[in-house]
């Protein structure tokens, strides 16, 4: 056969080729089994995913509560006398820390300690009033304000001159 004839014969065979062909064995049972398994594992997967979501939400809520109790214990856990004692303890710790930090710096005024003492007297008077009315918010705010004034005096008298210009 000539090359051209062979090529023509090949093209003819390609055109005649029956594209459909049936497999010798039934493939459906294997396919059905595989897709059923997939659906089951998909279902299990979604269940696991849902469980994970619930756990994540529970963890967030739990950490939220822990955070709330840790960050602001004085407002949530403490009331009355305990709250006043806690506020005073926190203030004393902050004041002490600040005085230690600024110890090496000279004070700009002579009477800053007198001012602190006066504010201490004011704080004691407020605390006395709080003994009779421990949950009085106005008195608690006054106490916080006095504490804040003491911190401000310490910082102000120890800050360098140039920063006050």
């Amino acid at each position: 056969m000539s090359k051209a004839r062979i090529e023509a014969s090949l093209n003819e065979k390609i055109a005649e080729l029956k594209k459909d062909k049936q497999p010798e064995r039934d493939l459906w049972p294997g396919i059905e089994l595989a897709i059923s398994k997939e659906d089951f594992s998909g279902l299990q997967h979604s269940r696991v995913e849902r469980r994970k979501k619930y756990l994540a939400v529970a963890a967030v809520v739990m950490f939220g509560f822990i955070g709330w109790f840790t960050i602001s214990p004085q407002f949530v856990l403490l009331t009355g006398d305990d709250l006043v004692a806690s506020l005073s303890a926190q203030h004393e710790a902050q004041k002490h820390e600040l005085l230690v930090k600024l110890r090496s710096q000279p004070a700009l005024t002579e009477n800053w300690q007198d001012q602190l003492a006066e504010l201490d007297d004011a704080a004691n008077a407020i605390k006395l009033a709080l003994e009779n009315d421990p949950n009085n918010m106005a008195l608690l705010k006054m106490l916080q304000s006095v504490h804040q004034q003491q911190i401000s005096i310490i910082e102000r008298v120890h800050s360098p001159k140039w920063s006050q210009i």
Partner: peptide
Amino acid sequence: IGQVYGLCYRLTGEKALAEDAAQEVFI
């Protein structure tokens, strides 16, 4: 299945491999 298996058979050149490939196609 006829169309899929026919193509699988011509591509793989083996009946057993073509059957497995056709199953994989439908999965």
